[in-house]
């Protein structure tokens, strides 16, 4: 492998890694914030992509408007999903909630398949078909945009959690729900907001992925990679998810090169098994007591 191939692999690996990080972060956020392990997160990625496709193809909006509108729409959908479908299950056994999210995922997936039957499977972005040439190395600017945008949004989210009172309230609810109630925080609103944010994160992954991989209901499979990223990162922090995602992205692509393309996915799961056996709390996680 030449140097330029190597650089390209790194760039591509980082970009898919940041997608995994976004998906993982959405999972962790919802789980820490509301106790829900949302198995519909993958379908929410696909939903975001389809909504963006709708705004782009049917409504005919330019990329930037599509981007913002899709995030808003999916945030609202996430909020409604929490209110209407998950809130009634508050306090239900864990297994019930898991099954409910699985069902939500299936419904979304099939609804997408039925409602969109057009052949066009992608929408255009300003970076389409461009190629960056840096010292004789071809780099798809989409990759740079995916990585940069994910990092920027995660950075903004980190700032929001660190500096904004509502962001802090979200963390408070995650760390101790009854104490948060005693602070006068309307916990139900925070739950809604948490699912809105985590759904918008899924949609962001969908929007970013689309120009590279196209839209399909099968995009939802990325949830598995999101899980691996989150678990690598200890399933409790934004930074952990980010690093977990990037590591997975890189390992996967280099794993594919050394063990063959069909073994790419297996790389991720071998890694997952290894981590679970050797470091069950992830690379950064500590053996903290679980939230009750």
């Amino acid at each position: 492998m030449g140097f330029s191939d190597f650089v390209q692999l790194v760039v591509a690996g980082l970009s898919s890694g940041s997608i995994y990080a976004l998906v993982g972060l959405g999972l962790v956020l919802a789980n820490k914030g509301t106790g829900i392990l949302n198995f519909a997160q993958g379908e929410l990625v696909a939903l975001g992509a389809y909504i963006a496709l709708f705004y782009s193809i049917v409504v005919g909006l330019p990329y930037w408007q599509v981007f913002i509108l899709t995030l808003l729409t999916t945030a609202i959908i996430g909020g409604i999903m929490e209110r209407a479908l998950l809130r009634p299950l508050l306090g239900a056994p864990h297994f019930t909630v898991v099954v409910a999210t699985l069902a939500i995922g299936l419904i979304i997936k099939n609804a997408l398949r039925i409602s969109w039957q057009e052949a066009v499977s992608t929408f255009s972005s300003p970076l389409d078909h461009l190629m960056l040439q840096i010292g004789g190395i071809n780099i798809n600017p989409q990759y740079a945009w995916i990585t940069g945008c994910s990092l920027a949004i995660m950075g903004m989210l980190a700032l929001f959690f660190r500096k904004n009172l509502v962001g802090k309230a979200m963390q408070a609810v995650a760390q101790n729900t009854s104490a948060a109630q005693l602070m006068g925080i309307r916990v139900s609103r925070i739950f809604t907001l948490t699912l809105a944010v985590s759904t918008a994160l899924a949609a962001l992954a969908g929007i970013l992925m689309t120009p590279v991989v196209g839209v399909s209901a099968e995009m939802s499979n990325v949830i598995l990679k999101g899980f691996v990223a989150a678990i690598l990162g200890g399933f409790n922090s934004l930074f952990g998810c980010l690093i977990g995602g990037l590591i997975l992205g890189l390992l996967e692509i280099f794993g594919g090169v050394y063990f063959g393309g069909l073994f790419k996915d297996i790389t991720a799961f071998v890694l997952l098994m290894f981590i679970l056996l050797v470091r069950p709390h992830g690379i950064f996680g500590t053996a903290e007591a679980r939230r009750v």
Partner: peptide, 19 residues
């Protein structure tokens, strides 16, 4: 000759072999 699966999103490994 190399193969890929429906739903694959990345073909770099196979393409490096081609190269």
């Amino acid at each position: 000759r190399a193969e890929f699966k429906v739903g694959d999103k990345d073909f770099t490994p196979q393409l490096l072999q081609v190269k």
